[in-house]
Amino acid sequence: MDHKCIDKILEKYGHQESSIIAILQDLQEEENYLPENDLAYISENLPIPLTRIYRIATFYNAFNLTPRGKYPVSVCMGTACHVRGAPMVFDRVRLELGIDIGGVTEDGLFSLETVNCLGACALGPIVVIGKEYHGNMTPAKVESTIKKYRKRIAKEK
């Protein structure tokens, strides 16, 4: 990210170390992950020891240290989704994308993650692709949904 943009984020939080989580959240919002160089820049300019940044970035679920796909695929693993068959849905997503948690497909389109609960339990099992919710998923629906995305993306190209 442009240093000027990072400066803006740091200023927004008054260069306060206690706001480091919010700063990283804003950075991730922009970049989709936390790039190494940006973290080094924040460390120097907040300032805050780099170790503290990495400790936080590896502790909280919200942060990714590697780039995610253009369409992050996130499977809800909440209890309600679990009893309605989320593990089977998750296995199928893994099979369909050929990647595991934290992985990105070779074409950079999809990445895979799980969330603990999206609070939309009525739709469980839920898979979120990009920002779209797909509810009442079944293993078969996973296949057709991902196919749809692939087709849509191919068309856009």
Binding site: G85, M88, D91, R92, L95, T138, P139, A140, E143
Partner: peptide, 10 residues
């Protein structure tokens, strides 16, 4: 069979 349950749902 990998016991994915797809057939059952279908």
């Amino acid at each position: 069979c990998i016991r994915c349950g797809a057939c059952m749902a279908a």
